[in-house]
Write a protein that binds this DNA or RNA. Structure first.
Lengths: 164, 164
DNA sequence: GCTCAGTTGTTGAATGCTCAATTACTATCA
DNA sequence: TGATAGTAATTGAGCATTCAACAACTGAGC
């Protein structure tokens, strides 16, 4: 596309986009701040623990865990290494595929998650859920679905996560 | 708050929250990806350039620039140092306050921004604006305003940015 | 069996962000 | 004037993420 036929944002579109940007920045920094200070867990790591905790056996293949937690393989690999150092996750060889690794949530990891969860949920309520009307929350969900659906389609590369 | 009286999220609330999380992750990684690959500019740096470009004289005090770009002073200081290395921003002493520094967008910086803008706007359209109905965009703006307003109020610390 | 493309996962370097500490200056109050 | 609290901005250490390169293995075709 040449510069001249760029479809610039209208004033209203730009205002909406910037307000959304600001909202995300404030929201996620509040979420991160609470988790970091009350539980010493980065939000990304928290998500990994949550996904593991919800799986039967509390264990998942690395690649499945990466997809479930919207994470790249590399990021997950580093993160699981840190979680392993804390004793919250254990890695084991996959029995059916010798390339594979299985990440398993330990009892200590589950306990850490259980201890962190109430404070985190409280922050999510204060920063988002309780701030919106139920109708707005529904709207936000539909908007989010549309964004995700658009990202799954497109021509250009737009997601960090493999579709496998 | 004791663990027992945590107001956990309902199924619907949790679904909305997770869909929103996923949407933000996919959206912002697409935005970052495009800027990084087509213009070699991190999104945070792009925002700094935009704020400067919109100011009369294309210059701002560091603290004002930090607030305008929703950035901590430290983050901005590091970022401007990098932008200075690229020749896109110049720092000068503030004439009215000898503690102060003024960040000035250079012609090269303005040119880099102008070159990057069309691609960035295109990505914002593909990932967000053109994906939503005008009504949804309005809803998103109101939702965003509510989130920002909630973050400005609260008891607990929830913003990284000073209110000065 | 052999080959080779594709998959799984890890590693290290580079980059950006956060946090705490620090320097330098301003403003207030006595 | 001198003392002191507050503000402006920077610095360096530590950490998380990205990227490219890599090692190990699988599976399909011949």
């Amino acid at each position: 596309m040449s510069t001249s036929d760029t479809r610039w944002l209208s004033a209203g579109e730009q205002q909406a986009w910037r307000e959304f940007l600001t909202a995300c920045q404030t929201l996620f920094s509040a979420i991160d701040w609470q988790l970091q200070h009350d539980a010493a867990i980065p939000h990304g790591y928290y998500e990994i623990l949550v996904r593991l905790s919800e799986t039967p056996g509390r264990a998942l293949r690395m690649s499945q865990l990466a997809e479930a937690s919207t994470s790249s393989k590399s990021r997950l690999s580093h993160a699981v290494a840190r979680l392993e150092e804390r004793g919250w996750v254990r890695r084991a060889d996959c029995p059916t595929d010798r390339r594979g690794q299985v990440a398993q949530l330990t009892d200590e990891g589950f306990a850490a998650l259980a201890a962190a969860a109430p404070g985190h949920v409280g922050q999510v309520r204060r920063s988002l859920i309780d701030v919106l009307t139920p109708e707005q929350l529904g709207q936000l969900q539909e908007i989010s679905s549309a964004i995700v659906a658009a990202a799954d389609q497109p021509v250009g590369p737009s997601r960090p996560v493999s579709c496998g």
